[in-house]
Structures are given as structure tokens and as C-alpha cells.
């Protein structure tokens, strides 16, 4: 199975072309903005490097968040466009899941993204299996949750917000990855059920109803 994985959710623009776990070509460039301009050319370059036509793709994978609202929409819109034009399935992978899969799965792995406004986006895995859903938490609550989940053994904190929780486990390995390894995204997507990508913002739009009322049930 040949997969193309895209990630524009965080401070990098990344593309990987993977066949049955083997990376055929990949590219990742750090950037805070400019994903929209760069992504199409990077995909073109990666396909050219592997000398593959687009019709050779079996699946498209894309990170769905949490992350930069604009970044993840660029990636998802692009992935949906590819999937439509090629008539192939498109699979959404959580950004925290992708970060967690970018490091050795042994023990407790916590993926952490700084969500700003005093929030961390956190998801934890034990031996590669998720043990909590992605959530937006204060540093204190996140530390308490991870403390409850830890059953002894190695601890890895990974992601652009990892250092915010570095103090809670003396023995933790802290890996401040700016963004996920796109090959890990492809790997996750190769075993995922085919579910269309749905954005995971973990934060409601900043919109108030007339009179300054916070609207109920805005989709996260």
C-alpha cells in the first residue's frame, strides 16, 4: 500500500510518501506560516523524487488537529482535493497521535502541544495505545492526569509543548519535536479504519452572540 501523508497542523510543512512502512521520499520544512503556498510544490517534489504518478497512491493521510486553525484547514482541504481527484480514501490522523507515534512507544508517552491561553493540548499513550482522548488542559490538570495514568516505567514527553510538563516526572525523556514525523503519520494511517477526516480544533471559535453571550454547542 502506497500512502501520501501531509502535515501542516504545527510549525512545519511535511510530506511523506511511504510504501508498506518504507519511506520512498519525504520532506519537512520548519515554518510558522506559508503552508498554503508551500504544500502543493512539496507534494510535487516528493512525488517526483520517488518517480511515482499520482494514480499510484492508495491512500491520503492528513493531520486533523489540534494545531493552527489555518494550517490544519490547508492540509485537510488539500488532502480532500487529492482524494476527490484521485478517487482514493483520505484518512484523518490526530496531531497528538502523530506526535506520539513519532517516538519509541515504550512506556507512557504524552504528546503535548502548547495551545496558548494557558492551555496544553495533551494525549497520552501506553505502549503505543491511547489511554486518553485528546484534551485541552491547564498544566496543573495535565500533570495530575498523567500522574494518574503512569504505571511506572519509562516516560516520554513529546511535542512542541513537551517542556511545559518536564518537571512532573524526574526520569522523563523530553523530546521537543516541532511537528510530527510524516512517516509516522503514514504508518498510523495505514492501519487506521477509513474514516473521512474531521477537524479537531479543541477550541470554539471566538464569537459572541449579540449582548456578549457565549453561544452554546459550537462545534469543536
Amino acid at each position: 500500500m502506497i500512502l501520501l501523508a501531509l502535515d501542516t497542523a504545527l510549525n512545519a510543512c511535511s510530506v511523506a510518501l511511504v510504501e508498506d512502512g518504507r519511506v520512498l521520499a519525504s520532506q519537512s520544512e520548519p515554518m510558522v506560516r506559508g503552508h498554503q503556498e508551500r504544500l502543493a510544490l512539496m507534494v510535487q517534489e516528493v512525488m517526483a523524487k520517488a518517480d511515482l504518478p499520482f494514480c499510484a497512491l492508495d491512500r491520503i493521510a492528513v493531520t486533523v488537529g489540534p494545531g493552527s486553525f489555518t494550517g490544519l484547514r490547508v492540509g485537510m482541504a488539500f488532502a480532500k482535493g487529492l482524494a476527490l481527484a484521485l478517487d482514493r480514501p483520505c484518512i484523518g490522523i490526530g496531531s497528538l497521535q502523530a506526535l506520539g507515534a513519532s517516538v519509541s512507544p515504550e512506556g507512557l508517552v504524552a504528546a503535548v502541544i502548547d495551545g496558548r491561553r494557558g492551555q496544553l493540548y495533551v494525549q497520552a499513550f501506553i505502549d503505543g495505545h491511547p489511554v486518553m482522548a485528546p484534551d485541552a488542559l491547564s498544566a496543573e490538570v495535565a500533570a495530575a492526569r498523567l500522574g494518574e495514568l503512569w504505571q511506572g516505567g519509562p516516560v516520554t514527553l513529546v511535542g512542541p509543548g513537551a517542556s511545559a510538563l518536564a518537571g512532573i516526572f524526574a526520569q522523563a525523556v523530553v523530546i521537543e519535536l516541532a511537528a510530527a514525523d510524516p512517516a509516522a503519520i503514514a504508518q498510523q494511517a495505514s492501519i487506521a479504519p477509513i474514516v473521512p477526516p474531521k477537524p479537531l480544533y479543541l477550541r470554539a471559535p471566538d464569537a459572541k452572540l449579540p449582548g456578549g453571550i457565549t453561544p452554546p454547542d459550537l462545534d469543536l
Partner: peptide, 15 residues
């Protein structure tokens, strides 16, 4: 704008 433009680019590139 970025949503429509990104989807359009993907279709143009893939085909």
C-alpha cells in the same frame, strides 16, 4: 479563501 484554493491546487496537481 485558503480552503478553496488549497483544494483547487490539489486537484490541479493530481490531474
Amino acid at each position: 479563501v485558503m480552503v478553496g484554493l488549497s483544494a483547487g491546487k490539489a486537484i490541479a496537481l493530481a490531474r
